[in-house]
Amino acid sequence: MDRYQAMATFVRVVETGSFSAAARHLNVGQPAVSKTIAQLESRLQVSLLIRSTHGLTPTEVGQSFYERARNAIQEADEAELAAKGAGAGLSGRLRVSAATTFARLHVIPKLPHFLAAHPHLDVDIILDDRMIDLVAEGVDISLRMGMLSDSTAVARKIATGGRSVLATPAYLARAGKPQSPADLANHEAIIYSQQPNVWSFTRDGAAVSVSVGGRLRVSAAEGLRAALLADMGLTIASDWMFAPELENGAIVRVLEAWSLPPIGLWAVFPAGRMMTAKARRFAAFVEEIMGSKPAPSQTA
């Protein structure tokens, strides 16, 4: 039995809570994971896991072993990278969770550069606008925008972007261009269900909040983009979400004299799990991408 591989398998089982989830992450069959854990318990002559209908939890000895094994694996990975040098490529599999539209527009087009720099690394990208359970899904890093609801998550802000009220020229020609936040009451708003329908603005130190309404509510950013481009109303969104259209004039900003709170892009790492070198390197890659992007034109 390979001691390092057995430790890595056990760590993944504890972090995911099941043999099947660990097997998916390790890209092996569930029987292989079960056999490895059984051999590890036999070798150590202790019970490491409590098996119940609710899943797998470590015993007291298992928890202690997990913490030491996790630290040992992390230190071994770091030692290997240090020995290979800063320019060494990564290897294995990296699982990334990201919002669909953001990944499609800003991350995936740049992935060839990252993969070329690390030819022995495979990348799985899970596209979902909702925050998924990173541990259960075996995710190494999640890219999320806005406020983070999980206070236990390990997160680092890697970029900050602007937010604007946006519309198409065709919609504004039909409905008129609002001159103040109060005018939004007379407009059809496209509501994104993952953000409140109360929009808050500031101008010259004064703050105002308005409640908007509309007949269409969407649960994903791709739906928001499609509805806006179909001239169905106006909406509030990050400039990142409509970067190409803001450049070519298909989408324009309104109420530009009023400011909206900026939005943060976060690299989120699974709580209670070691932060891998692969995840850190990918976070730095995305940070470099967003830092090098010129802001879309501010002219409507």
Results as ranks from 00 to 15, higher is better:
residue 285 F to V: 15
residue 131 M to L: 12
residue 205 G to Q: 03
residue 64 S to T: 08
residue 239 D to F: 08
residue 284 A to W: 10
residue 258 W to V: 15
residue 170 A to D: 09
residue 184 L to P: 15
residue 178 P to I: 01
residue 83 A to K: 11
residue 96 V to P: 08
residue 273 R to I: 03
residue 166 L to N: 13
residue 238 S to P: 05
residue 13 V to C: 01
residue 98 A to N: 06
residue 95 R to K: 07
residue 270 P to T: 00
residue 57 T to A: 14
residue 93 R to C: 09
residue 24 R to T: 04
residue 143 L to N: 10
residue 267 A to T: 01
residue 280 R to W: 01
residue 90 L to G: 10
residue 140 D to E: 05
residue 129 D to Y: 01
residue 174 R to V: 08
residue 119 P to K: 08
residue 177 K to Q: 13
residue 189 A to E: 01
residue 24 R to F: 02
residue 191 I to S: 02
residue 217 R to W: 00
residue 3 R to A: 14
residue 82 A to I: 11
residue 271 A to L: 07
residue 196 P to W: 04
residue 213 G to H: 03
residue 114 F to C: 12
residue 27 N to F: 03
residue 107 V to S: 04
residue 8 A to Y: 00
residue 181 P to E: 00
residue 23 A to T: 04
residue 52 S to I: 05
residue 25 H to Y: 05
residue 188 E to F: 04
residue 52 S to L: 09
residue 149 S to E: 09
residue 73 I to Q: 06
residue 24 R to Y: 02
residue 233 G to N: 00
residue 132 I to Q: 09
residue 106 H to K: 08
residue 226 A to H: 09
residue 92 G to T: 14
residue 196 P to F: 04
residue 236 I to G: 09
residue 193 S to V: 08
residue 242 F to K: 07
residue 206 A to T: 13
residue 44 L to Q: 12
residue 268 V to K: 01
residue 12 R to Y: 00
residue 224 L to A: 07
residue 1 M to I: 00
residue 117 A to N: 06
residue 295 A to S: 14
residue 188 E to I: 13
residue 268 V to S: 08
residue 112 P to S: 11
residue 79 A to I: 12
residue 236 I to M: 13
residue 199 W to V: 15
residue 79 A to W: 01
residue 76 A to G: 09
residue 290 M to Y: 05
residue 142 S to R: 02
residue 224 L to Q: 11
residue 273 R to S: 14
residue 204 D to T: 08
residue 201 F to L: 02
residue 156 R to D: 01
residue 251 I to L: 03
residue 125 I to M: 07
residue 90 L to H: 05
residue 105 L to D: 01
residue 75 E to S: 15
